[in-house]
Simulated scan of single mutants.
Amino acid sequence: MLDIPRIKAISLDLDDTLWPIWPTIERAEKVLHDWLVENAPMTAAMFSSPSALREIRAYMSDNRPDLKHDLSALRRESIRLALYRAGENPLMAEKAFEVFFAERQRVELFEDVRPALAFLAGRFPLVSVSNGNADLERVGLAPFFRAAITAREFGVGKPDPRIFHAAAGALDLLPQDMLHVGDDATLDALGALNAGMQAAWVNRSDAMWPHEVEPQLSVGDLTQLCDLLR
C-alpha cells in the first residue's frame, strides 16, 4: 500500500509514461530520412537498409561504450559513421542529428498527462528521471518540474539506484521521501524500490507484473494516481 504521508516529492519517467515513444521515434526517423534523401542520398540509401542500420548500431555499441547512456551522441555518431561509409561529408552529421532531434521533441502527450502534471506539481515538487534524450523545455513541460535528471548527463541510467538518489538529492530529500512514477516494471518500478523509494507502476497496457517484489501502487494512468493523492 502507498504510504501517502511519507511522500514529499515525486519523480517521473518521461518516455512511455507521459507520451508514447515509438510513434515519436518513427516520425523523427522519417524526417531524418527525408532530409538525407535531399542532402546525402547515398547515406539515405544506407539508412533504408535494416541490416546496415543494425550493423552500424552494433558497431557503435561495441566501439563507443562511453556513449551507452547518451542516446543523442549514439544517434549523432551513427549518422556520422553512415555518412563516412557512404562517401559523403561526415560534418553533415550535426545538422542531420538536429533535424532528427527537433522532431523527436514533438511528442503527443497521453490525454491524462497535462491535467495530472498540473495537479501533482501543485502539491509536490516534481523531478524527471529519464534514460532517454527528451528535453523538457522543448517538449513544453519544464514549468511543471523543479529538476531533470538524465542518464546522459549523470552518466548512469535506471535501474541503477544512483540515478534515483540523484533525483532525491536534486530536491534536498532522501530516497524514502520520494514516490517514483514510471511505466517500465524493471527500470522504473523495481529500480525505484531498490533505491529505497516508493514506486507507482503506470501500466497502460494491462500487463502482468513480472517481478517477485511488487510496487506500492499500480495504476492504469496518471488520473488514477491523482485520485489517490487528493
Rank of each mutant, 00 (worst) to 15 (best):
I149E: 04
N63V: 10
F144G: 03
L228K: 14
M42T: 13
E55N: 14
S61F: 12
A166N: 05
A167C: 10
L53S: 10
W35I: 00
I7K: 01
L53D: 02
E137C: 04
N63L: 07
E212N: 13
S51D: 15
M197C: 07
N39A: 05
K8I: 06
L222C: 08
R230C: 08
N131Q: 08
W22A: 12
L36E: 00
A166I: 04
D112L: 07
E153Y: 08
P90S: 11
D13F: 01
E38K: 15
P115K: 05
T150W: 01
L228R: 15
A147F: 11
V129M: 14
L174M: 14
S48A: 15
L81W: 04
F145S: 07
A44T: 04
L36Y: 00
D160I: 06
L193A: 12
P5I: 11
E137F: 08
W22L: 13
K30W: 05
M197E: 10
R204H: 11
S205I: 08
R57P: 03
D112T: 10
V129H: 04
T17S: 12
R114H: 13
I25N: 00
N133L: 04
R152A: 15
N63Y: 09
P161H: 10
D184N: 15
G122A: 15
N63M: 10
V99P: 08
V31I: 15
N131H: 08
L190Y: 06
F124P: 10
L71C: 03
A58F: 06
